[in-house]
Design a protein around this nucleic acid. Structure first.
Lengths: 359, 359
DNA sequence: TTGAAAGCGCTAACAT
DNA sequence: ATGTTAGCGCTTTCAA
């Protein structure tokens, strides 16, 4: 392994000059010194040791990212966007950890990251309770909460970056209403998070704005989900019957995310009805897969890439500016119109029992 | 920050005793010494610095993982499985990098990882050419190639862990044949990788074994894919017309992976036909989402979790045993029967032009 | 403009 | 059984 010493020797300068070159303090030396050092570096193919540097400076060019699970493509997408930008813009890498929304695991991971010298972390938890994060903040970690709204008037100790979930819910409702739907529903997993709550609120507010002709119900899945795609899909699937059997069956349903919408659509078809002819569906997330399922899912899209970049920016700022004030940063979602929404059906088709074989 | 010195002072021992405790060399000291040290550690809430340790030992408890993109759920799943096992079993973390199958990026990431002190890396590249990896191996990195078959009689310098792709192709074909299909097809993106080639070979071999009554064609998508789910979905979608317009339209189609199958199903429906009534589909991968789309996708499942664990085991072994001989390790896939395969239709329904509105 | 040297926190060889 | 100590490769103050 070649060290800074080797470079210094070859270039006939002291290690401090090499160090200065490494750290961009080029003004402090003659041009030819700089050139000799550069040459030596490239001739030896020298690469500085992060470990040694970190031992001195206390920092390592790594950002932490805690997600419920990378197997869920929406978090995978976030990870990719962050990794890209962090690397390109700042030369930082991203250490990805799967928390399964387990608080204990989460705390342990945070501690671990600190031990590695990581100074800033993005946490996607959606748990409304952030107490377990406080400890990490106390230890000097810069934490950025993703998709976790700030309680009104709460004073925050760390950044919160999120999409306007109320607007997302509103957009979904408006789209259905514009297509003539009068009986709406919003499907969400049991186990509320702040962001889910906000989606519901926005959805209901839009319904309310639409006047007396339009009504809406909030449906909580019977089982709770913890994370992951399979569970959310299952949960949507299961809920189909519950929705289709309602006294006043809704003709338009929005869901808390795309995976649930995809499961719900499967469930509806399983019961012999069709989307969007019998029921219209709107998702929230706009997963890339949502364009390729059948029917292509109309969904509310979150600007994940921009959010990822903003979070990286803030993380680096916090590292470089200890004591930087915490901020809440909100992004606007947008509806992406595809084919899972149509005008409501004239009549309400009965469902087929699940034990009746489909033709 | 509390250091090993602080612990030594509080416990009234030397730093080496603390270090010994830290590294499990407990036999070398009296019990009460050990206890005093333990107490001091927990009282001070002491956590050793990875950086300092790494500087001394040259190692850091991190494994590298290079995937085309974490936004593709099959790689996300792999990452989760590895991360879990590496952490639980060995206390290692996983540093995830997205390569986009770009060789240059890949080499740079490998170099980067080495700079961080990472000693073992799992590479999911599927590029048949591994020359760019050689350099990293020369620098002492233990590389484990995932899903990259070894050429017959090639001498390998690094581990290769993969599923039996020929068997996967064979399983897909057999399943269709068992359901009475006589005209089969295998859909793969343009741009062959070794693993895709093997799937095709296995598929054709099974068709061949079935005798004269059964025929098969290999269909390459018109456009090439580089990675990611959206592209693979698009690619399946586009290929639907090509397949349905064939002179001897196949009644059963297998695809190189689930995302392509999902896109293909969407494309088929877009053209007015139905799965599995008009065309049966088998995927390969068994993504968790595949159970929740409509119809639930019959797919060949790869034992991702086991493979992930084996790779972690091997990675650690290589770290602990420099010079350990390279191995090719192959896992068996399994067919998961769902609802995208039925008996072939009696007649071949014509497709609807894409500009004819569906009812 | 350059160099010498201390020391970041730890491990491990060596001494006691 | 325990302690002393020399570095690992780098940054950074201070001196020249």
């Amino acid at each position: 392994m070649t060290t800074i010493q080797d470079v210094a020797r070859l270039a006939n300068v002291s290690v401090s000059s090499v160090s200065n070159v490494l750290n961009g303090r080029v003004d402090r030396m003659r041009k030819d010194t700089f050139i000799r050092v550069e040459e030596a570096i490239s001739k030896l193919n020298y690469r500085p040791s992060h470990a040694a540097r970190q031992l001195k400076t206390g920092r390592i060019p790594i950002l932490g990212l805690l997600v419920p699970t990378a197997a869920n493509p929406s978090f995978g997408q976030l990870a990719v966007a962050m990794e890209n930008f962090a690397q390109e813009r700042y030369g930082y890498r991203v250490l990805l950890c799967n928390t399964y929304r387990d608080k204990q695991l989460e705390s342990r991971m945070l501690d671990d990251l600190i031990d590695f010298g990581v100074r800033a972390v993005v946490v996607v938890s959606s748990l409304s309770d952030e107490r377990h994060i406080e400890a990490a903040i106390d230890r000097g970690l810069a934490v950025i909460s993703f998709d976790l709204p700030v309680e009104p008037d709460a004073l925050i100790r760390n950044d919160h970056v999120l999409a306007d979930n109320r607007l997302a819910g509103r957009l979904a409702a408006q789209h259905l209403i514009e297509h003539g739907h009068k009986r709406l529903a919003f499907l969400t997993p049991r186990g509320q998070t702040m962001s889910r709550r906000h989606k519901v609120e926005g959805f209901l507010a839009a319904v309310n704005d639409a006047g007396a002709g339009v009504s809406a119900q909030v449906i909580e899945s019977k089982t709770a989900s913890k994370f992951g795609d399979s569970e959310l899909g299952a949960l949507g699937f299961e809920s189909a019957e519950q929705i289709l059997l309602m006294k006043n069956r809704p003709t338009g349903v929005a869901t808390v995310n795309d995976m649930t919408a995809i499961g719900l659509m499967a469930g509806i078809r399983h019961l012999g009805l069709s989307v969007p002819d019998d029921v219209s569906i709107v998702g929230i997330d706009d997963l890339s897969i949502s364009a390729y399922i059948w029917p292509p899912l109309t969904s509310v899209s979150m600007p994940v890439t921009e959010m990822a970049q903003k979070m990286v920016d803030r993380a680096i700022q916090h590292i470089n500016t200890p004591g930087l004030a915490a901020k809440e940063i909100i992004f606007a979602p947008q509806l992406v119109n595809r084919q899972s929404v149509a005008i409501p059906p004239a009549t309400s088709k009965p469902i087929q029992g699940t034990d009746i074989p489909r033709s």
